Amino acid sequence: MLAIVLLLVVLVVFRPQREPLMQEASLDTRPHPEASSSQASNEPVVIAVVGAVEHPGLLSLDPGSRVADALEQAKPQPDADLAGVNLAEKLVDGQQITLPRIGEVLSRPEDPAPPGDAGGKISLNRASISELTALAGVGEKTAAAIIEYREANGGFQSVEQLQEVKGIGPAKYAAIAEHVVL
């Protein structure tokens, strides 16, 4: 509990002063553009925050916001396990953040497969670091490189572009190519 309070104090004290990044998002029934196009423009990133937070639901944040920004608005509960999430992870439009409680093991259903997908594949343009590390041979550094490439290039246009990511050679590409989609 003390660790959580200290972490929140550090986040608030050392965060640069600026206007709040988030506000409640209204339910929008229009189709959302791909994450890469919303981040390429100045459109807000809409995410869902659930789990051990006082204010679960949809949030609208500035492009480039991070998980810590979302949790600042959603207010973690005292029994939230902040070590269970990557506070530095950049947010992607349509992402859901689940904040577990201390000692809770999260088991969530697979994200729905995109139309035409065989299912169970990981989206290169939407996956978080933790989702990417589920791929065989992909550690945190490679997952971070995939996300960095995605953000720098406006998303992946083809699975073959994985070969341009630092740390992915022919063998690693062959091992993961059939397990990913755009």
Score class of each variant (00 low, 15 high):
27 L>F: 14
56 P>M: 10
113 A>M: 09
28 D>A: 03
85 V>L: 13
94 G>D: 06
129 I>C: 03
79 D>P: 00
180 V>M: 11
176 I>Q: 09
118 A>K: 13
94 G>V: 05
175 A>G: 00
136 A>C: 01
128 S>A: 13
71 L>A: 02
20 P>N: 04
78 P>S: 14
121 K>T: 10
125 N>S: 07
158 S>D: 12
155 G>P: 07
47 I>A: 03
69 D>R: 03
107 S>M: 09
135 L>W: 02
7 L>R: 14
18 R>G: 13
51 G>S: 09
151 E>H: 06
127 A>G: 05
41 S>Q: 09
123 S>F: 01
18 R>A: 15
116 G>H: 11
93 D>P: 00
68 A>C: 07
114 P>R: 15
155 G>Q: 08
13 V>Y: 03
140 E>T: 14
145 A>S: 15
78 P>L: 15
97 I>G: 12
25 A>I: 04
62 D>L: 14
22 M>Q: 10
153 N>Y: 10
17 Q>M: 03
152 A>H: 04
165 V>M: 05
16 P>T: 00
162 L>F: 03
59 L>M: 14
133 T>S: 08
77 Q>T: 10
53 V>Y: 09
45 V>S: 11
114 P>M: 13
100 P>F: 06
97 I>A: 11
177 A>I: 06
104 E>Q: 14
151 E>F: 03
65 S>V: 06
20 P>D: 11
64 G>F: 06
79 D>R: 12
34 E>Q: 12
116 G>W: 08
148 E>N: 09
149 Y>I: 03
92 V>P: 00
46 V>Q: 06
33 P>D: 11
17 Q>P: 00
145 A>R: 13
159 V>Q: 10
179 H>E: 12
125 N>V: 01
21 L>T: 09
162 L>D: 11
1 M>N: 04
71 L>H: 02
165 V>I: 07
138 V>P: 00
145 A>H: 10
176 I>H: 09
146 I>W: 02
87 L>Y: 05
157 Q>V: 08
98 T>P: 00
161 Q>C: 08
48 A>N: 12
15 R>G: 04
143 A>I: 04
97 I>L: 15
35 A>I: 04
126 R>V: 00
77 Q>S: 06
140 E>H: 07
60 S>T: 03
39 Q>K: 10
173 Y>V: 01
30 R>T: 14
138 V>L: 04
146 I>N: 02
54 E>V: 01
50 V>D: 11
73 Q>I: 01
157 Q>K: 15
76 P>W: 05
142 T>Q: 05
110 E>Y: 02
126 R>T: 06
122 I>K: 08
46 V>D: 02
181 V>Y: 03
109 P>Y: 10
16 P>S: 09
10 V>M: 10
70 A>M: 05
119 G>R: 12
84 G>R: 06
75 K>P: 00
163 Q>D: 02
95 Q>K: 08
17 Q>V: 08
101 R>Q: 15
9 V>I: 14
117 D>A: 15
36 S>V: 03
62 D>W: 01
63 P>H: 13
121 K>Q: 12
119 G>E: 06
167 G>C: 08
166 K>F: 02
137 G>N: 07
24 E>N: 05
43 E>H: 03
110 E>C: 01
87 L>N: 02
2 L>H: 09
146 I>D: 03
20 P>Q: 08
43 E>W: 04
13 V>H: 04
109 P>A: 15
171 A>K: 14
